[in-house]
Design a binder for these strands. Structure first.
Length: 436
RNA sequence: GGCGGGUUGCCCGAGUGGUCAAAGGGAGCAGACUGUAAAUCUGCCGGCUCAGCCUACGAAGGUUCGAACCCUUCACCCGCCA
């Protein structure tokens, strides 16, 4: 990927700009030389998810254009809880949980940016560093004094909450902490641009106001840019799996196979948007894929490309290859019996699995439940509904047990629920059993 | 601090002593149709050793042959008043 000539133009055609402060001034400053910008990531979970990639990759886009990104982990703000976009108060996390999550998230942030000594070398920060040492008196005098209550109440995040049941002083204060972060990064790193989801607009402008009051408007030409909060065709946020859960970046939470499959299954109506927001593909390529989707939707060229780009970006080319082999084997035309053991093993490495010991062979229902992590009632229902498959053959009866001939290469059973959910059952290899 | 209202299954929400594993909607799962898509139709949608049993309607006790529904206490939320 080559550096982008004009990062604003690039963001613009991708649909990545929701709101900005003075756009002409921002363009001018970006053209004048490397600008330091930041985006905050609060530790709301053990991992970032696909949705978090939109702002994170936006930081990367700025870096590729020669600017210096600061990724800020919200070690302090995570304690408080951002009221933005929430209808009810957050449950406070313990210090251990926050610290743990910050550690995990920092590690993920590092992977998407370049940390070198060049002018565009990234910086990783944690707002706990300057927030924790601040006393309540300092906070109220040095930060709080600059915030008229009227302006704070007018923020969308606050007024929405006042409508829907209120909020506590704790969350009300959140915007002050985030504003102070911007001021702090302005002072430490000369940071003059903050980006974030569009729900962050209020918090970001709170920072602008603070910096201008403290530093003076002329001396501090600071900017804000927000990214649109994109929802898919069904109204869900990006990165929500059909199961309702997030699609995580941590391979322990969402396997590379699941990520790949999630992206491969993206709705036709959304895939163009996702290509723009989540990949670095040039405009011509994206428009080519748009055309491919409308001309030959069944080929799903755009989905395939999206899945490849992101799986490689998040998990590396090695994982991508493994995942593609798995998908080809499991969804391919050939029968499972024809696969050689190496291909089969690789394909199934990504699937949830159940290891059997010796002893009597359980029923298919028990195997489904054990391998897919569902209840036996659920497994029973799957069989009753005709949605359970053993080695791609529909299971007819709840009491069925796999026969000796069902074991692929003497060791494996491939179980499937519906079209896409696959699991594997493995038993110890018979010492002298000939391959099937 | 006072008074009133509330807490139901993943979410919203009906249910005021037996016919309640609990209406309805959403989400989700499966089948049919497809392109591992969408839309549509159909079935399912607490657990289990599944024609039955167990657990569940904020928590703990109590009344009753029988409680999501009545009583007591506790916790949390909301509104009005101070």
């Amino acid at each position: 990927m080559s550096p982008v000539a004009d990062v604003v133009d690039d963001l613009s055609w991708r649909g990545l700009i929701a709101q900005t402060t003075d756009l002409a001034a921002l363009r001018r400053d970006l053209a004048a030389g490397p600008v330091t910008l930041y985006c905050g990531f609060d530790p709301t979970a053990d991992s970032l998810h696909v949705g978090s990639l939109v702002p994170l990759l936006a930081l990367r886009r700025f870096q590729l254009a020669g600017h210096r990104p600061v990724a800020l982990a919200g070690g302090a703000t995570g304690f408080i809880g951002d009221p933005s976009g929430r209808s009810s108060e957050r449950v406070l996390m313990t210090a251990e949980v926050v610290a743990d999550r910050v550690r995990l998230i920092r590690r993920q942030l590092e992977r998407f940016l370049d940390f070198d000594d060049s002018p565009s070398g990234a910086v990783l920060a944690d707002n706990l560093e300057w927030t924790a040492p601040m006393s309540a008196i300092e906070f109220l005098r040095d930060v709080g004094k600059h915030f008229p209550i009227g302006a704070m109440l007018a923020k969308e995040s606050v007024s929405a909450r006042l409508e829907s049941g209120g909020l506590t002083f704790t969350e009300f204060s959140y915007q002050l902490l985030q504003a102070n972060d911007y001021l702090e990064l302005y002072r430490r790193h000369g940071c003059t641009l903050q980006i974030g989801g569009n729900d962050q607009w209020g918090n970001i402008t709170a920072g602008l106001d603070l910096i201008r009051r403290v530093e003076g408007a002329e001396r501090a030409p600071v900017h804000a840019l927000t990214l649109p909060l994109v929802t898919d065709a069904s109204g869900a946020k990006i990165g929500k799996s059909t199961g309702g859960g997030n699609v995580w970046l941590d391979p322990a939470l969402t396997s590379p196979y699941s990520l790949y499959q999630y992206l491969l299954n993206v709705d036709d109506r959304d895939v163009g948007t996702y290509l723009r927001l989540l990949t670095f593909l040039p405009r011509e390529r994206v428009e080519e894929l748009d055309a491919a989707t409308s001309d030959r939707p069944q080929a799903r060229a755009a989905q395939r490309c999206l899945a490849e780009e992101l799986t490689a970006l998040v998990h590396g080319p090695g994982e991508l290859a493994a995942v593609q082999a798995a998908s080809a084997a499991l969804f391919g035309a050939g029968s499972l019996e024809d696969l050689d053991e190496a291909t089969l093993t690789a394909a199934l490495a990504e699937a949830p699995s159940l290891q059997l010991g010796t002893g009597p062979v359980p029923t298919v229902v028990e195997l489904l439940a054990g391998s897919l992590g569902i209840s036996r009632s659920d497994a029973r229902r799957a069989v009753r509904d005709g949605g359970a498959y053993l080695n791609n053959a529909r299971v007819g009866d709840e009491a069925d047990r796999p026969g000796e001939g069902a074991w692929l290469h003497g060791r494996f059973l491939v179980l499937r629920r519906g079209k896409r959910t696959i699991a594997v059952v493995e038993r110890p290899a018979p010492a002298d059993a000939p391959p099937l």
